[in-house]
Simulated scan of single mutants.
Amino acid sequence: MKCSTYILRILIFCILCCGHIAQAQKGTTPKKQTLLWTTAWSKDNKLIAVGGDDRVLRIYDSKFLKTIMSFPLHSMIRQVSWHPTRNILAIATSDDNVSILDIATKKMAKLNGITSGARGIGWNFNGELLATADNDGLVKIWNANAKLLRTIKKESDDNSYFSLDWHPHKNLIAAGGDDLRIIDTSGATLKIIKHRKENTGILAVRWHPSGDFLALGDYGQDKEGIPSIVQFWNPDGTLIKVLRGSKAEYRNIQWNKEGTLLATSSDALRIWNKNGDLLFTGKSKDLLWGLDWNSNSSQIITTSINGHIKLWTAKATLIKRITK
């Protein structure tokens, strides 16, 4: 009898130990985090789109940062762009897929004419045209009916494009890769700007809302003594200003609606004025990639390399953080 009791106690002890070990292992196993490349605020400020390497497009309620719908895709999401007047979203991915999502119907329409993934995507000022800058060094333009109108090749090489932005009032496109190119919808390249002597890609380009000049942010190579920079350029190729301070690449830059403030995402969220003076810095423990202002310039949303979604004030004060 005593032997049976002893054996029973040993079994109970072993079971409890196994349970504690399993619980400890569960508690110490790090959650797999997803690089979130892109985020964008809808024009009515109600929705925030987020996408990244997990191949899922998520739409959040902007007030509470709660997921209200999600759409699994076949490849990693590189950039999203809301239509300027309608609640539809253009989505660029890492393979041959550019899609437009209608939020009201939840239907996804794939555009034809893409042979490899696109990094840059955007609507023109009135929403009648959509353009991509892709991995083959091509700029492609569609009309509002999703008809491919034009494919624009580089004259000299086929190196990848990383970024694209339409002029705020004209049908001109700025596309960033190894250099900065200003292109019109006829296919003519109006200007090529070699932004620095070092070979470092332009990851983000944004026209100022006035249309008078452009801002660009590059990759840099900090470990090799080539710091990442933000520059202001006139469209004629005149350099206006160089902004420094980051120890990591500038993945995204965004003007607020009024053009008074420029937000940049890299090793921190930085807010600059139109003259290029640094006003505010929001520290981050991980690198920031996606970035967007809301339409009234009161808040900023960012995404990060470790799957964090962060909401900030216009003075780079963190309001809220969630993890995908």
Rank of each mutant, 00 (worst) to 15 (best):
D102M: 14
T38W: 13
I121A: 11
T67M: 07
W41K: 00
I91E: 00
L8S: 14
T132G: 02
A22T: 14
S75W: 10
S62N: 06
A49P: 09
I15H: 11
R78N: 14
C14T: 14
K140H: 09
A92L: 00
I21D: 01
T29W: 08
N112D: 14
D44W: 05
K46N: 06
A118H: 06
F64D: 13
A109F: 15
L8P: 04
K43G: 12
Q25S: 13
G19E: 02
T132Q: 09
L47I: 03
I7S: 03
L47V: 13
R55A: 11
T5I: 12
A109L: 14
V80R: 03
K26C: 14
R86A: 11
P30V: 06
K26P: 05
N97Q: 00
G122W: 00
I88H: 05
S62Y: 04
N87H: 03
S81K: 04
N135K: 11
K26Q: 12
K107Y: 07
A133H: 03
W82D: 00
G113D: 08
K32I: 11
R9T: 06
V56H: 03
S116R: 13
L89D: 01
I114D: 02
P84Y: 03
T67L: 08
W123E: 01
I21A: 08
A133V: 01
G120R: 10
C14R: 09
L89W: 09
I7M: 03
T93A: 13
A40M: 02
L130G: 08
R78H: 13
W82Y: 06
D44K: 05
Q79F: 12
N97W: 08
D61H: 04
D61E: 09
C18W: 08
T39V: 06
L138Q: 02
M69I: 08
S81C: 10
K107C: 04
I48L: 00
T85E: 11
V50N: 02
A109D: 15
L65E: 01
K26G: 13
I48V: 08
K43F: 01
T28V: 14
I121V: 01
G120L: 12
A92V: 09
S75A: 13
D134R: 04
P30M: 07
D134N: 11
S42Q: 04
W37T: 12
V98E: 12
V80Q: 04
G113R: 02
A90C: 00
F64T: 15
T132H: 06
G120V: 14
A109E: 09
C18G: 10
R58S: 07
I100L: 15
A22H: 06
G127F: 00
H20P: 02
R58V: 02
K66T: 15
I91Y: 09
G120A: 10
K63L: 00
D61F: 01
I91S: 02
G27S: 12
I12W: 12
G27I: 09
A133F: 03
L73A: 06
D61Y: 00
R58Q: 05
G117H: 10
H83P: 07
R55Y: 13
